[in-house]
Design a protein around this nucleic acid. Structure first.
Length: 762
DNA sequence: GTTTCTGTTTATGGGT
DNA sequence: ACCCATAAACAGAAAC
């Protein structure tokens, strides 16, 4: 393509009849394998019966109801004092009794307090092995959920037949989802690589993980076609709630060097998301390639010798998201075993979106799970929502501190942001930190910041400004400038740079990468290093057309090292930028790719035009722009955020306080997804220096530090809010809340309304 | 020389 | 209008 002329004609694309395709995939959920409960021939009705019977066995106060929407699933309301263990045991027994026909899945809800669970070993489902599987999902409102979590995770062995899920807080919802979505099972295999990734050699971990996964898979299969089928299939059958972009990021970020070959990416995805290995059509690889080529954030680097091509994530765009992060518990030390993590992590319920972020219940830091970022939530939605959790969640939202809110909002913002993004960022000014206050935040900001919080988020605000969709007008004023310096933003995540860059990108094509061409060393990238690699990137010519592509080769990075490392993200960015230069537009200047890259590509051409365009905020790249990051971005990134970094602010405290503040409930969830997908924000947003931490090595987490304390604070703050929502303090607060209120918000979203249940239960 | 892999683009459709 | 997913055509390079 160099020239489009060549472009193949694309004949028509026929859309295969969905039905057909879907069948395999879609059905997967329901497929035979799938959801045991549902699948089971079970008769819904049977469940009812069971429910009735249950009471007898269970301690007083426990109510069991059939799940409105889920077949073979019953909702068990557990009193605070109730002994969960015993309940579980009873349920398990029941499940067995009922046999395939009966309900095999139970959702435990503890309304008031934390259920008491003996910490000890749960008998867990000992029952387990029943051919039919019983799932128990526990949800607790109370703080203790944590404990549950611990317990719940059932030992592998137990599972086959039964599935216990804990949903702590936010996730609870997810749990509910299980059926539909499936839990995370698909993740099941996932290991906590991510965690490791942060600090450790992920590669190793990956391998380990793979083994684990494999072993698990085997186990599952081994277990029995039937039984196993139930559990295993489910997991496998369901498609992960992540976009390809997100998965690619997870894969790449799972490595130390933050780079990965195409094959490795395929392998990683298959390993972590069995769906792709077993169920997805072969075309998924095409999609992966397509995404790599399409998104500017993905930069292709070639080894020095040019023989090997690695894909990296542009530092500025890289949020360093890892699978673990998505779900990862904050505290390292957490007692939870990987398994636990898995269990929790696993369920990404798209639906719950909200939940995710907040899980109040968890004990101290124990886990925060993020919600998976779902690309398409809707599609994944689950039927049920748990009021409880949600409620909890929601509430916070209500009161949530602005910052948080902002973050939350991000999702929406994101969307807006897109537009916004345009704003190129005034930032340019860059200041990295500098504040440009000026521009006012747009509406969104107002919302978020509006309140007193604003102060907190200085940086963000700034960004927002830029971002703001608000408009351009304001932006324009500045923005324009931005363009001028088009730097490569990429490289520099730094604020200052960033901004500029952004413009450049966009203009140019938005491709982050593009710049790279220039200098940007691709290198810095994540890996940092890439020292040896040549990077290739493509640029998009988007300008021209709209294509979104990127293309450019990156020059070798040799230099990079220096640049990259020099400072860290920020520095690096800049350095590069400087070096690189100016605008991508210029690309010409630089090597332009010229060089040696194999794939020279597209870029060349049009660039020039870019400039002019640049002025226009035309297309924003997704990630870049997104930045809307503004606020949200930052915050969100729960992921990356290294919590640690934030030391400064006590999350809990913050939260507490915040909790006081009202927030909007806004959809936190969305955010997450956005995060992933949109990567961008980070980058852009990064309040901190934007620079992404390059970090790989560096302290990614902490890295941000530099920016102003304020920033840090903000961030920390925000993060805290978002992530930590689960803090105890918060959770406690939440606990007090009664369901009633919840209903609407929460319920509203879902079909099922707890409201209905509750009364009944009571 | 053929096949396969990898990378780029374009097109289309669905969901928001 | 965007995003995302998917399908497909093609080209270059590597593997057979």
């Amino acid at each position: 393509m160099k020239t489009s002329p060549r472009r193949p004609l694309i004949l028509k694309r026929r859309r295969l009849p969905l039905p057909v395709q879907n069948a395999p995939g879609d059905t997967s959920e329901e497929e035979p394998k799938g959801p045991p409960a549902q699948q089971e021939p079970a008769q819904p009705q049977a469940s009812e019966e069971v429910a009735e019977s249950n009471p007898c066995k269970f301690p007083a106060g426990i109510k069991i109801m059939n799940h409105p929407t889920m077949p073979n699933t019953q909702v068990v309301a557990v009193p605070k004092n109730a002994n969960i263990q015993s309940i579980i045991t009873a349920l398990t027994a029941k499940g067995k009794e009922s046999g395939s026909s009966g309900p095999n899945k139970f959702i435990l809800i503890s309304c008031g307090g934390a259920p008491t669970r003996p910490a000890g070993p749960q008998p867990q489902a000992q029952t387990s092995n029943d051919p039919k599987r019983t799932e128990v999902i526990t949800e607790t409102l109370g703080p203790k959920s944590a404990s549950k979590d611990v317990n719940l995770p059932r030992p592998p062995g137990a599972l086959p037949g039964q599935r216990w899920e804990n949903c702590a807080g936010g996730e609870a919802a997810g749990c509910t989802l299980d059926n539909s979505l499936t839990n995370i099972q698909w993740l099941g295999k996932m290991t906590s690589d991510g965690l490791g990734s942060c600090s450790i050699k992920q590669e190793v971990e990956e391998k380990e993980n793979r083994h684990l996964e494999q072993s698990q898979a085997k186990d599952a299969q081994a277990e029995g076609p039937l039984g196993a089928s139930a559990s295993w299939p489910d997991s496998v059958s369901e498609r992960p709630p992540y976009s390809y972009m997100a998965m690619i990021q997870f894969a790449i970020n799972s490595t130390e060097r933050k780079r990965m070959t195409l094959k490795d990416i395929y392998a990683w995805i298959e390993d972590h998301f069995p769906y792709f290995k077993h169920i997805a059509k072969p075309g998924w690889k095409n999609s992966i390639r397509h995404n790599l080529s399409l998104h500017d954030m993905f930069v292709r680097e070639t080894s020095a010798n040019g023989k090997v091509s690695f894909w990296t994530i542009h530092p500025s765009a890289n949020r360093y998201l890892t699978l673990d992060q998505v779900f990862k518990p904050l505290d390292p030390g957490s007692p939870q075993s990987p398994e636990h993590l898995e269990s929790q992590q696993k369920r990404p319920n798209p639906e719950l979106r909200q939940n995710v972020a907040i899980k109040t219940e968890l004990p101290l830091g124990a886990r925060r799970k993020m919600k998976p970022l779902l690309p398409r939530v809707s599609s994944y939605l689950v039927p049920i929502q748990f009021p409880v959790n949600q409620s909890l969640v929601l509430q916070p939202s209500v009161k949530v501190p602005l910052p948080l809110a902002a973050s939350l909002m991000s999702s929406e913002l994101a969307r807006h942001s897109k537009r916004v993004r345009i704003a190129p960022k005034v930032l340019l000014a860059d200041e990295g930190v500098a504040p440009l206050p000026t521009a006012g935040p747009v509406k969104e900001e107002k919302l978020l910041l509006g309140e007193g919080l604003a102060p907190l988020l200085p940086v963000q605000s700034i960004k927002e400004e830029e971002v703001q969709p608000g408009e351009e007008a304001p932006r324009l004023g500045r923005p324009i400038k931005v363009e001028s310096p088009p730097l490569e933003e990429w490289p520099s995540p730094c604020p200052s740079v960033r901004e500029e860059s952004s413009p450049s990108w966009e203009d140019s094509s938005r491709c982050p990468v593009p710049r790279p061409k220039k200098s940007y060393s691709g290198p810095k990238s994540p890996a940092r290093c890439v020292s040896d690699l040549l990077v290739i990137k493509r640029r998009e010519r988007r300008e021209m057309s709209r294509s979104r592509r990127k293309q450019h080769l990156l020059p070798p990075c040799l230099d990079e090292p220096e640049l990259c490392f020099s400072e860290g993200p920020g520095a690096s960015g800049r350095a590069t930028a400087g070096a690189s230069q100016p605008a991508s537009q210029q690309r010409g200047s630089s090597h332009e790719e010229g060089g040696p890259f194999k794939t020279p590509i597209k870029e060349m051409l049009p660039v020039s035009s870019t400039p002019s365009k640049s002025a226009l905020p035309v297309t924003p790249e997704s990630w870049r722009l997104t930045p809307p990051a503004k606020v949200g971005g930052l915050d969100f990134s729960p992921v990356r955020t290294p919590q640690g970094a934030f030391g400064p602010l006590p999350d809990s405290l913050e939260l507490a306080d915040l909790s006081g503040t009202p927030l909007k409930s806004v959809p936190l969830f969305d955010c997450p997804r956005e995060l992933l997908d949109s990567e961008p924000f980070d980058i852009t947003a990064d309040p901190f220096g934007g620079c992404p931490p390059s970090d790989a090595e560096a302290p990614r987490p902490g890295s941000s530090e530099p920016q102003g304390a304020g920033l840090a604070a903000n961030r920390s703050l925000t993060e805290g809010l978002v992530l930590d929502t689960m803090n105890d303090s918060l959770s406690k607060i939440l606990l007090d809340i009664s369901f009633p209120g919840l209903e609407e918000d929460l319920l509203g979203s879902d079909d099922v309304s707890w409201a209905q249940f509750i009364p009944e239960l009571r």
